[in-house]
């Protein structure tokens, strides 16, 4: 299997998954209405009550909610793969002379595309309600960029879950239980210092906090204080765990 065909197969799979994003109303809502809704609810309902270091809450919130949204997108990865496994499409794909990796890379690539779209949309809406970048143009691109990069290994882990889970419903339960505490016990919505003392070390150790801090510092044009490096290390480490797990789950006879 040469590289050209591997890329070709991956491209065909990416296109298929992107079509599914556009055509399935629930997928479309999850990358349009839902993130905007969260952005507006947090800003106008909770924003007034949360004390942050930045001049206004939207500036604090946007990078956080962006990372949260793209990480939530990992749900789509897991659900999509679990659906494919359930409908028998996997059996067809596995019986075709294609790169074994194409099903997963095609899925992940489509999800990265969806995340780029979501990030653009959220920053656009953020601009309308007062969000401004405070750094250089490069930092302004790197801010959502690091969020999308960090979402990749999370999607990889979720891919493994999606491929292992017994049903689409169980993916929902596993994902829900895992991802809510991970995203909320972090600096995404409130400063870690505002949490009870026993919870602060947990939030600080959470790789999600590192990614949010990195994205936020880049958005504000502040010193990232090692958060970018930490996020990159976490990305590599999580990928090193996710890839073998995902490949094993995919090749597992079912």
């Amino acid at each position: 299997m040469n590289l050209r065909w591997t890329l070709h197969d991956s491209f065909i799979m990416t296109r298929r998954n992107m079509l599914r994003y556009i055509r399935l109303p629930e997928n479309l809502v999850s990358i349009t209405v839902q993130p905007i809704m969260f952005l507006l609810l947090f800003t106008y309902v909770l924003g007034g009550a949360i004390r942050v270091t930045t001049p206004d809450y939207i500036t604090y919130l946007l990078p956080g909610i962006l990372v949260q949204t793209v990480v939530f997108g990992a749900f789509a990865t897991a659900l999509g793969l679990a659906q494919d496994a359930q409908t028998g499409l996997f059996e067809r794909f596995r019986s075709l002379p294609i790169a074994r990796s194409a099903v997963i890379t095609g899925r992940l690539t489509a999800d990265v595309m969806a995340n780029i779209f979501v990030a653009t949309l959220m920053i656009g809406v953020g601009f309308l309600i007062g969000f401004r970048f405070g750094g250089s143009p490069l930092e302004s691109i790197a801010s959502p960029g690091i969020a999308i990069l960090f979402a990749l290994p999370v999607a990889g882990l979720f891919a493994a879950i999606g491929l292992t889970a017994r049903s689409v419903e169980s993916v929902n339960v596993i994902g829900f239980v895992a991802i809510f505490p991970i995203t909320f016990i972090s600096s995404a919505f409130v400063p870690v210092e505002s949490m009870p003392g026993w919870l602060q070390p947990v939030a600080d150790a959470n790789p999600f906090t590192r990614a949010v801090n990195a994205s936020r510092a880049l958005a504000l044009g502040q010193d990232t204080g090692g958060d970018v490096t930490a996020t990159l290390i976490w990305t590599v480490v999580l990928l090193a765990i996710a890839i073998p797990l995902g490949v094993r789950a995919y090749n597992r006879p079912r």
């Binding site: 298929r16 079509l19 599914r20 055509r23 399935l24 409908t87 028998g88 499409l89 996997f90 059996e91 067809r92 019986s95």
Partner: peptide, 14 residues
């Protein structure tokens, strides 16, 4: 080879 398994393996959205 070609394979048609027990479930019709087609993509519903295509």
């Amino acid at each position: 080879i070609g394979l048609a398994g027990q479930f019709a393996a087609v993509d519903d959205q295509l």
